[in-house]
Amino acid sequence: MTPIDPRALRNAFGTFMTGVTVVTALDHNKAPIGFTANSFTSVSLDPPLVLVCVANSSKNYAALAGADGFAVNILAENQIEISNTFARPSEDRFAHVAWHPGPAGSPVLQGGSAWFDCTMHQTVDAGDHMILIGQVRAFDSSIHPGLGYVRGAYVTPSTSTEAIAQHAKLIVSALIVRDNQVLLQDDGNGGLALPEIDVTKGGASDAIKHVIAKTGLRAEPGFVYALYEDTGRKIQHIVFLCQASDGAPHLGAFVPISASAFDDVTDPATLSMLQRFATESTLENYGVYYGNHNSGEVRFTA
């Protein structure tokens, strides 16, 4: 296994909002075990440590306490059924789930947003739970947006956006990021702008996919990063935070995520949002903006 790059690991942690995970391991017979959890937390970057919690009442408690390690699988938005499978009692939760052994040995589920394969660093008794602290030995992430769970219901980018605004004129923009850079395009007036489109048919979910397709990049829409209204023109703006894979865009170019790199962005509201994004990227603490083009509030995701 290659050494962990702390910066790459920090970027992977910062990419995903707190969401639904499946913790997997091997029992003493080397059979795969796992359960759905949402208590995944980054502990340290040097050494790279993460933690999850398992209830003392869990049937996997003894196996996890004695395991050599575990993997944390962050589920994608289309993996609701996998979340349900690992949350319900089952004789073989892996029977209909595609997986493979990770570099450190724990089961890694296919098609998720990310995974972190860990060796066991420490276990800590904590009331009616046991804390598993793992040292990350290998990890990977994809462009697939994550699956969230709020107030007893699953939350995905498509469901959250369609509920945001109805019967309003909408403009959907893509905040496409890759390797600490963001994609900007010519706005037609000598300045720069985010890729965007007026929403006509199909709603915001179809619109963001069309915006991404026009860039020529492989990317998928993540969660809504900003929602604001241009009160003068009576237009609602929805901005998706998207992760892109390798490849050159058809239009525009990636620029570093820094306040100074956005000087040529002509729209004041977009400029303010990008400056906030640069600050949040540095602090690794992201929020969702609600308001209008002049003022509003930021509600942090963690």
Rank of each mutant, 00 (worst) to 15 (best):
W115K: 04
C118H: 04
T119W: 00
M120W: 00
M120K: 12
M120V: 08
H121T: 00
T123F: 04
D128F: 01
D128T: 12
M130G: 11
M130Y: 01
I131C: 07
I131D: 05
L132K: 01
I133A: 08
G134F: 07
Q135I: 01
V136A: 08
A138R: 03
S141E: 12
S142K: 00
H144A: 11
L147Y: 03
L147V: 05
G148R: 07
R151G: 01
R151A: 15
G152I: 15
A153D: 13
A153K: 12
A153T: 12
Y154F: 14
T156A: 08
P157C: 05
S158E: 14
S160Y: 06
I164F: 10
Q166F: 03
H167A: 11
K169E: 14
K169G: 05
I171K: 14
V172G: 05
V172E: 06
S173F: 02
A174Y: 02
A174C: 05
L175W: 03
L175G: 00
V177W: 01
R178V: 10
D179M: 03
N180G: 03
Q181I: 09
V182Q: 02
L183I: 09
L183C: 04
L183V: 05
L184P: 01
Q185V: 15
D186Q: 05
D187Q: 07
A193Y: 01
L194Q: 07
P195Q: 08
I197G: 04
D198I: 00
D198P: 03
V199S: 04
T200R: 14
K201S: 12
K201F: 06
G202L: 03
S205M: 07
D206L: 13
A207E: 03
A207Q: 05
K209S: 12
K209N: 13
V211K: 01
V211C: 02
I212W: 06
K214N: 14
G216V: 02
E220S: 13
G222T: 07
G222L: 08
F223S: 13
V224F: 03
L227S: 15
L227P: 01
Y228V: 01
E229L: 10
D230P: 01
D230L: 10
T231Q: 11
G232V: 10
R233T: 14
K234D: 13
I238T: 10
I238C: 10
V239W: 04
F240C: 06
L241G: 15
L241I: 00
L241V: 00
C242H: 02
C242L: 06
D246P: 01
A248M: 12
P249H: 07
H250D: 14
L251Y: 13
G252E: 09
A253C: 06
A253W: 02
A253I: 10
F254S: 06
V255C: 07
V255H: 02
P256N: 10
P256H: 09
I257N: 00
S258I: 03
S258G: 12
